[in-house]
């Protein structure tokens, strides 16, 4: 290892500006939120400074636990669906000839430029009864009458997957495009069909990146707000919608702060657990 040079004033400046930014605009609000979660709520009014565990105690209420369970479930599902679709997609994309390869990659990436609001309302129209996809099905004679697929659970899941898919592809792409072609060819010369090569070589080699992609979608959709608010009924609301509902409509800011902190801890815990499992299995293999 080369000896580290003593940091110069320039280094401090380059590091210092973003650090100061993070401190002022992330750590400070975060600290305020931690404090707020212990404040006293004035029913029908606002809140006042104090120290009580009332908001934290409410985390054990049925409604909240139910929302948490639902959020975890739909995020895990979205992560699973995204990986199942994005992994083979990205693998075959990385094996395509240069021109269609780049074109397809650009199409996928351009989906990133769409805001969650636009995606949410577009799907809301497409899945609706008045101007939705089912009208095309009726027109084609495949269905008897148009129907609405939103609001509903599958509509929310679809919206979340749509938003997260390009991120998932972006996570998988660098590693899959670097996968040595000769490794898969070696498997084939040893008698493995392309299908078996995929399952016995490509997937096991890519396990760490599959976990990373899954985790990214999971955390990303766990914090998603608009999609479930637009495409779901109240029973399909994720924790984020519930939090904002508490903060803006019920004016219960201390409870919203406690829930937001809980969500952060939950996300971090999930990341930690997956990383732990990953390092365990790698050590054992």
């Amino acid at each position: 290892m080369t000896e580290r040079r003593k940091p110069t004033r320039g280094t401090y400046l380059v590091l210092g500006v973003p650090l100061a930014f993070l401190g002022v605009f992330f750590l400070l609000p975060f600290g305020i939120m931690v404090a707020t979660s212990f404040y006293h709520r004035i029913p029908g009014g606002f809140y006042e400074a104090g120290f009580e565990l009332a908001s934290w105690r409410r985390l054990f209420s049925g409604v909240f636990l139910e929302r948490t369970g639902f959020s975890l479930l739909i995020s895990l599902l979205a992560g699973g669906v995204c990986i199942v679709v994005a992994f083979p997609f990205t693998y075959f994309l990385s094996r395509m000839r240069r021109r269609p390869h780049v074109a397809l990659l650009i199409v996928v990436m351009s989906a990133l430029s769409l805001s969650e609001v636009i995606v949410g309302f577009t799907w809301s129209v497409l899945l609706g009864r008045a101007a939705g996809l089912s009208n095309i099905m009726v027109w084609l004679g495949l269905m008897d009458e148009a129907r609405a697929y939103q609001p509903g659970f599958l509509a929310v899941l679809l919206g979340l997957c749509y938003i997260a898919f390009p991120y998932c592809v972006l996570t998988l792409y660098p590693s899959l495009s670097r996968l040595d072609r000769e490794v898969t060819e070696a498997a084939q010369t040893l008698g493995a069909s392309p299908w078996r090569t995929f399952w016995t070589v490509v997937v096991p080699i890519s396990r760490p990146i599959i976990m990373a992609g899954f985790l990214l979608v999971f955390v990303f959709t766990l914090g998603s707000y608009l999609i479930s608010a637009i495409l779901g009924r109240p029973e399909h609301w994720t924790l984020s919608v519930f939090i904002s509902d508490q903060a803006s409509f019920n004016a219960n800011v201390p409870f919203a702060a406690a829930m937001a902190l809980f969500l952060t801890v939950l996300s971090l815990a999930m990341v930690g657990i997956v990383m732990l499992i990953e390092s365990r299995t790698r050590g054992a293999a």
Partner: peptide, 18 residues
């Protein structure tokens, strides 16, 4: 290739890292 009854050593060796 997988039905040809061949064994091949590749330039990069292409061993399975996992």
């Amino acid at each position: 290739p997988h039905t040809r009854d061949i064994g091949m050593v590749f330039q990069t060796l292409a061993l399975f890292p996992h």
